[in-house]
Design a protein around this nucleic acid. Structure first.
Length: 152
DNA sequence: GCCAACGTTGGC
DNA sequence: GCCAACGTTGGC
């Protein structure tokens, strides 16, 4: 049996929230315009579990779980001139940005806030608690993920 | 609103 | 290739 990998993905609830995902069921995680975050997405596998994190809100924190169901999809927003994610340098014959498709799994009974995460984990254990970390997609170790899942 | 911590851009 | 200027993210 292959073990799942775990990730954390951030979204501002005003832009896309856990409740919207719950309603949609599945969604394309598009609009990623950071190479490091994109490369993490490229390392995902079907069945990987993702912690959904609400950023830029009070308080920020983990609000639910989702699952990767499709990989290496071209991000359509890069070619959409009306999108804020339009990238004039990206060509359809050689797309620069891709994304994954995710499925809603569960919403936390209670938000696991960043301040709580800081108490539970060090910067080395969980990257989202690292000061100044701006990446919107981060890996989570299996060990830490199992602890987190019990708490949400 | 402030600012730390980056990433990106462009002149040279 | 260097680096200054600028832009973005996101906590506080």
């Amino acid at each position: 049996m292959t073990e799942e990998n775990y990730w954390l993905m951030k979204s501002e609830p005003d832009a896309y929230s856990i409740d919207t995902l719950k309603k949609d069921g599945v969604t394309l995680w598009d609009g990623i315009r950071n190479y490091q975050a994109r490369n993490f997405m490229r390392n995902m596998q079907k069945g990987d579990i993702i912690f959904f994190y609400h950023s830029n809100c009070k308080p920020p924190g983990i609000v639910g779980l989702m699952e990767v169901i499709d990989l290496n999809l071209v991000d359509p927003t890069q070619f959409d001139k009306n999108s804020k994610y339009f990238d004039p340098k990206s060509k359809p014959e050689n797309p620069r940005w891709d994304c994954v498709k995710v499925k809603f799994l569960s919403k936390s009974k209670r938000k696991l806030s960043l301040s709580e995460l800081k108490i539970l984990f060090s910067e080395d254990e969980l990257l989202v608690v690292k000061k100044g970390n701006r990446l919107s997609i981060l890996p989570v170790s299996n060990e830490i993920a199992k602890i987190l899942i019990k708490k949400i």
